[in-house]
Nucleic acid binder design. Sequence first.
DNA 1: ACCTCCATGTAAACTGTTACATGATTCA
DNA 2: TGAATCATGTAACAGTTTACATGGAGGT
Lengths: 182, 182
Amino acid sequence: MIKYILLGYLKYQPMTGYDLKQSLDHSVSHFWHAHHSQIYTTLRKLDNDGLVSSEIIPQQGSPDRRLYTITAAGQQEMESWINQPMTHISLLKEEYLVRLFFSAERNPQEVIAELILQIKLHEEKLQVFYQLQHHLENNARKEHPEFERDIHFWLFTLKMGLSFEEMYIQWLNNTLHEIQNM
Amino acid sequence: MIKYILLGYLKYQPMTGYDLKQSLDHSVSHFWHAHHSQIYTTLRKLDNDGLVSSEIIPQQGSPDRRLYTITAAGQQEMESWINQPMTHISLLKEEYLVRLFFSAERNPQEVIAELILQIKLHEEKLQVFYQLQHHLENNARKEHPEFERDIHFWLFTLKMGLSFEEMYIQWLNNTLHEIQNM
DNA sequence: ACCTCCATGTAAACTGTTACATGATTCA
DNA sequence: TGAATCATGTAACAGTTTACATGGAGGT
């Protein structure tokens, strides 16, 4: 998957591994994250496979930057992937739910403390989503009118992150109250 | 993670790899799934580490069953894990969102067709959740009153799966309408 | 005749995380 | 003085998926 995210980004413009990491952290990371180590190694593999090309840009004082550019083969690979419709749904992996599932015998006060911490963390995340949404709807749209259509699609995915957090927080609060009244 | 799921189940009763796979598929699989190959290999590792013990139950006509029982060390390992509160939140990995994020240049009709298919798949999943909830709230509760408290916790996690699917379907429908009106 | 269920496993490949490793610049 | 940012990489490990492999029993 990370392969297609990198190709998708490089379709917009040539970028370095570092740039890509920054960009991902502020966009797709909410539904697909990656460490820099994985990004650098995947870029090398894409280069070996001819899906991207790279050129070294010398720097003084810091390591040379390696700028990656998508090739025609890379564009085709990306398009072939995105045009092949997805016929399954993704499966969640939610560690907290595993913990709650097996929490019946735990000390209720500790379960409640953990719930309250989860609520706090998810509320912080929700705030980040609101800020991102504000930024996309205002700044980005005005500064890059040529990306109007793309921004629509980015906002769709952001809206999903937002709805997820809102739903999750509500569910956590309901669960908290039910446990307190048990 | 799968290690703790297996230990958590084995705390209720001794089980075989096959039993565990069946049980997981009808419970935690909605927030943490595993293939049988991973379950069998993890059980072997738990056995080697002394967290479970196993005995072979001969069968006629089919392979012997290997019944796993949690050990005192296994119980302690599980309790130590569950009592150490989680101080982060899980990160989503949603392939469909990656696809939508990069879909601005796709043929709108294909994007719409994919959206409609996703709606159908998520609605089917939602129905499964409703049935599971009905089963837990009625049959399971009456047949196993000794698990009353555990069932409460299982229902919490089920409620989350249900809310997630309801939210997701609503988001998909909104996105569909917005794309149709673009 | 074919499918599903029971029941177990191994091997290879792939994906992802954590830790190690370096070093200049800028800001508080 | 210490932290953050820029900038890249490798290595070891852990976790996960896919494919291969077998074979009887019971139902349609």
